[in-house]
Design a protein around this nucleic acid. Structure first.
Lengths: 217, 217
DNA sequence: CTGATAATCGCCCGTTAGGGTGATTTTTTT
DNA sequence: AAAAAAATCACCCTAACGGGCGATTATCAG
């Protein structure tokens, strides 16, 4: 717990079960250093109101009726990426683990977790941690590795739009000067972009870049 | 009819129907400038005997019992490619038109064709023509166009095995010297092959060649 | 036997590509 | 406002590429 305690941690909660939601609110309000700024029983209210409340962290039920918690989190973090979200679930839903974290969740807590651990976990998240059970952690790491593998085969996603534009022309057989002419920029600029493309794709020649481009298309 | 008539045209016929076969034999023997050197009621006899008889032209029933006429023609022309073959059929069998001509047939006649036209057609074949009905001709041209289209999209077929080998390495991103090392040949030889590949594929750069290669794969 | 094709290698020469290095400007993010 | 990322341009230099032109050998079909 290295959190600066001069200001309480502002928490919002999105949970459709009134009993559970109120339990969390009472827990947070009764704990020193925590402030529960709002609670919602559905995704829509949360999405419209949370950006204005500016909580530090949101506890989000993953199984909301109607729009699910992952979609809700996406909407909130799109409006304000600084708001951290920890997903709540009653059981270890393997399939949504990666989906949530990939979509921007900072952690993952079982609702049955003891109050003290919940408070501790919130502090962990504020400090940059990512609370989750050991079993879930292993699965996440596994998923992450798989994703990393995919990402490496499909590196085109890391290219900027300009780079992608140039790579497309490169993969059409155009020379530097022709690309420069088409885009109304200098030949050296094209070269510069291509250098960056090569580094991102981990290749050394135009042919290797074209191969990667055509394969992932 | 521009054929040199000093020597009669030597004809063999392969047709399982005795009545039809004899009709053709009588027609040919009774016509000046023609000589029927042999007749067969099955493919096997024709294949073993025709090369020795050395006819100028073979009239081949497309629907032979057992081994069909197309296979029979292939075997005969493999033994002696100078022997011309005209397929005989009772009806316009669309599907076998291209197959026969692609396999080396010089023409295509309906059995119901009048004797004078048959004799004329044989002379046409000897003179380098390709007798067939107008309807069949149109279908053949159509098939041919389709094939040509495929060939042009798939230009890789015109490459020699060595060229294909080199193009594969080229499309894997290897440089000339690396390809040379892998194939134990000189860098200039690789360059020479690649020059030929470029001409066959109608491209000017390695990238364009790679694009064509990857697309047709 | 002769011609055609395939595979091999060499040399000259100009163009293109790619690495190194550095810089300016604009846009985005923090 | 400050920092980071994206886009822009420039210069030097070596290696790779591609065209032109020619040549030898082996094989195979006519």
């Amino acid at each position: 717990m290295t959190t600066n305690q001069t200001q309480p941690v502002r928490v919002s909660i999105v949970e459709d079960d009134d009993r559970i939601r109120n339990m969390f609110i009472i827990l947070l309000e009764g704990a020193p250093g925590f402030r529960c700024v709002s609670g919602y029983s559905n995704a829509e209210d949360a999405i419209t109101d949370i950006p204005a409340k500016k909580p530090d962290i949101v506890l989000m039920d993953i199984n909301l009726p109607g729009k699910n918690g992952i979609e809700c989190m996406k909407a909130i973090r799109e409006a304000d990426p600084q708001i951290l979200v920890v997903m709540l679930t009653v059981y270890e839903d393997n399939e949504r683990i990666f989906e949530s974290l990939a979509a921007g969740a900072s952690g993952y807590l079982l609702k049955s977790t003891s109050p003290s651990v919940i408070l501790e976990s919130i502090h962990d998240v504020i400090d940059g941690g990512a609370p989750m059970s050991a079993q879930i952690a292993r699965k996440v790491v596994h998923s992450f590795h798989t994703i990393q593998k995919d990402k490496h085969q499909n590196d085109l996603g890391s290219l900027t739009s300009r780079e992608h534009e140039i790579l497309t022309l490169l993969a059409s057989g155009y020379m530097y000067k022709e690309i420069a002419g088409k885009l109304f920029i200098a030949k050296d600029t094209v070269k510069s972009h291509i250098r960056n493309i090569y580094e991102k794709l981990q290749v050394r020649t135009r042919t290797e870049a074209v191969i990667k481009y055509l394969d992932n298309n």
